[in-house]
Design a protein around this nucleic acid. Structure first.
Lengths: 349, 349
DNA sequence: CTGAAAGCGCTTACAG
DNA sequence: CTGAAAGCGCTTACAG
C-alpha cells in the first residue's frame, strides 16, 4: 500500500503547534499569544512581549487554529457561497469577483449542488453548523429564502424581486433585454421567437418579460407559439430548436432570442446543421456574453452582464456587514449592455 | 439602515440549539445525545433512550455543531480542493465529479486563487488550520507539493510525474496527443505548429512532448520556430497567432495544435479575421473538448479529457483514505480520446 | 501590561 | 447501558 505508507509518513511530520507551545517558548501566557496573533496588542501588550511572541510564532510556524478560535469566538472565518449552477461559465466570473473583494481574511466555501438544484434544508443546516461569518446566495428562489432563516450577515446576488429578504446586488437584465428588442426592431425584424430557460430563477422571468414587452411596443411580434424553454444545455437547446424551426420558419420568424448564450450555442449549432444562414435567414442572440460568444462564427450578439462586478460588489457588501459596518446602500443594481456581433448583423453592415 | 435592521431581526430568530438542550429535553446526558446524533448507538444506548433523543432532536431541530465536534475530534468534515484555475470550464466538470463521489458527509471547500496562481504557503497554512478531513490538489507543481507537508489524507489530480508525493488520479493526455498527431499525419499534413500554455503545469509538458515526438515519428515536422506559448486566454492566443501566422504560412504550416481548446478558440477567431479558411488552408485542434468545441464553426477537433471521471475517481480515493480504508490502487489513469470535427476535416470527407 | 480561569460545544475514555 | 468529567485550542472578561 504505497499510498498508505506515504500518508503515514507524512502524518508524523507535522505535530500541531499550539498557542501553549508558543507561550512556553516566549515565556508568556496563552492570553498574550492570542492577543499578539490577532493583532490586538494596542495598549494591552508590551513591545517587549510583542516581539518575543512574534519571534516564537515565526520559529515554530504557529498558525491560529481556526477550529479552536471559531469555537471561542462563536463564529468562523468561513463565507459560504450558495449557488444553483456552478457549472455555468458565467458563474466563474462571479466567484472571481467575490474572492477578490472578500480578501484573505475569509475563506470562501462553495456550496456545490447538482446543476440547477438548490441545497435542501438539511444541507443548509449542515452548512450553518460551520458557523459561517457570512452567507452569499446566488439566484435563490423565494421558497429557499423562506426556509433559510439565517442569523448572520447575508447578501443576495442576482435575486431580483427578493430585495425584502436581505441586502442584494442585482443586474439590470431588463435594460439589456430592451436594448436587444430595440436592436432587432431597428434591424427590421417583424417576428421573433424566444428560447427560455426552464430553471425558473427570477432573472429569466425578467429577461423574457422585458424582451416581450419591449418587442410588442416596437412592433415586433412574438407569438405564444414562438416561446419555448429548455434547460441550460447546448444539446437540449439544439434539439428543441430543431423540433420547432420548421414551424417557426413557416410562420415568418426571422430572429431568435435565447435566455442564455448557452442556449444560443445550441441554436447556432442546429441552424448550421439545418443549413440556415445566420444572420441572413435568422438572427440569433443571447444573454450573458460568455467568452466564447466573441469567438463563435458568426460572433454571438449578447446582452453583456458584469459577472465579476456582481461578485465583487456582493463580496464588498457582505464584508461590511461582517465587520459590523452598515451598508450605505442595501440594494445595488449593476448595468447591463448590448454587444452586437455577426449573429444579428450581416458582416459589412 | 434597512439591511442592518433585517439582519438584526434575523439574528434573534434562531437561538443555537445545543446538545445540552437536547439532553435536558430527553432526560439524558450529553454523552448519550452525542452517541445518538452520531449513530454510534450499537450496544451503547438503550432503544428507549435512542427514541427519546431522536424525538428531542427532531423537535428542537438540533444539528451537531461542526466547530465543537471538530475540536473534540481533532478533525473537521471539510475537504479542501486546491486548484490553480477555477475559471477554466474544464474544471467545472472536475468539481461536479468530486462532489458526486464525496457525498454529503463532507463539505467541499474550494480554495480559489487568481487564475493560474497557486496558493502561497501562508494560504495553505490557513487552509490547514481548518483541520480538513482531506485534501485534493489539482495540477500542482512539485515546488508546491514540497512545501505542502500535509498530515492527512491527500489525493492529487492531474499531477503526472508527481506520483511519488501522494496517491493520484491522472489523465493519459499523451495518448490523446499521439492520436492527434496520427490524425494530422493521416490527413496529409507535413508541417504543423504548436500553441502551448505557459502556465507550466506538467500536463502541458506532456501534451506538447507527446505531440512533438509522435509527429516527428510520423514525418510531420514541427520546427522550433513553430512552437509558441500564451496564457490560457482566447484573446492572448488570438494575438499571438496573428503575430506569427504570416511567417508560419510562408513556411508551409498547414496545421496548428493548441494546448487547450481555449487557445484554439483564439486561433479560430484570428483565422476568421485574417480570412484563413479552416480546415482547407489550416487545420486547428485543441485539448479538453470543452462544450463549445462541438458548437463552434467549424466544430473544433479536440482531445477529449474525462473531467467528471477525474473528479469522481479522486473523490472516491480520498474518501477511502479518510475512512481509513486502504487504496486498491494508488495510481489511477483515465483514458483520453480524440474527437474529430470540422476544424481538421473538410465537411463531406 | 499580565496571567489564571472560564467557557465555547462537542466527543471519548472511564468508572460505575 | 449511563453519566460525570476531562479535554480539544482558543478568546475574553476579570482581577491584579
Amino acid at each position: 500500500m504505497e499510498s498508505g505508507d506515504h500518508v503515514q509518513e507524512l502524518r508524523g511530520r507535522t505535530p500541531r503547534v499550539t498557542a501553549a507551545m508558543v507561550a512556553a517558548r516566549a515565556g508568556v501566557s496563552t492570553a498574550t499569544v492570542s492577543l499578539v496573533a490577532n493583532g490586538k496588542t494596542r495598549g494591552r501588550v508590551s513591545e517587549d512581549n510583542i516581539s518575543r511572541v512574534q519571534e516564537a510564532i515565526a520559529e515554530l510556524g504557529y498558525v491560529v487554529d481556526s477550529i479552536g478560535s471559531s469555537l471561542a469566538k462563536g463564529i468562523s472565518s468561513i463565507v459560504i457561497l450558495v449557488a444553483p449552477d456552478i457549472s455555468n461559465p458565467f458563474f466563474a466570473k462571479v466567484i472571481a469577483g467575490v474572492r477578490g473583494s472578500l480578501g484573505a481574511d475569509y475563506q470562501l466555501l462553495l456550496s456545490v449542488t447538482d446543476a440547477g438544484e438548490f441545497p435542501r434544508v438539511d444541507d443548509v443546516r449542515r452548512l450553518l453548523a460551520l458557523r459561517p461569518a457570512g452567507l452569499l446566495v446566488d439566484a435563490p428562489s423565494a421558497a429557499f429564502l423562506d426556509e433559510l432563516s439565517v442569523a448572520g450577515p447575508l447578501v443576495l446576488l442576482d435575486a431580483p424581486g427578493l430585495e425584502s429578504f436581505a441586502p442584494s446586488v442585482n443586474l439590470d437584465v431588463g435594460h439589456g433585454a430592451r436594448l436587444l428588442a430595440r436592436h432587432l426592431a431597428d434591424s427590421g425584424h417583424k417576428r421573433a421567437a424566444y428560447v427560455d430557460s426552464v430553471t425558473g430563477t427570477a432573472t429569466f422571468e425578467i429577461r423574457r418579460a422585458a424582451f416581450l414587452a419591449e418587442s410588442a411596443a416596437l412592433g415586433v411580434t412574438v407569438a405564444p407559439d414562438h416561446v419555448i424553454g429548455t434547460t441550460i444545455d447546448v444539446g437540449a437547446a439544439a434539439s428543441a430548436f430543431a423540433a420547432v424551426w420548421p414551424a417557426w420558419q413557416r410562420d415568418g420568424v426571422t430572429a431568435v432570442v435565447c435566455a442564455t448564450d448557452t442556449h444560443a450555442y445550441g441554436v447556432l449549432q442546429e441552424a448550421r446543421v439545418a443549413g440556415v444562414r445566420i444572420p441572413q435567414e435568422l438572427a440569433v442572440a443571447g444573454f450573458d456574453d460568455l467568452p466564447y460568444s466573441a469567438t463563435s462564427s458568426p460572433g454571438l450578439t449578447s446582452v453583456h452582464l458584469p459577472g465579476d462586478a456582481l461578485g465583487a460588489k456582493a463580496g464588498e457588501q457582505l464584508r461590511r456587514l461582517m465587520e459590523g459596518k452598515g451598508l450605505e446602500e442595501s440594494q445595488l443594481i449593476l448595468q447591463s449592455s448590448l454587444i452586437v456581433r455577426g449573429s444579428t448583423e450581416p458582416a459589412g453592415t
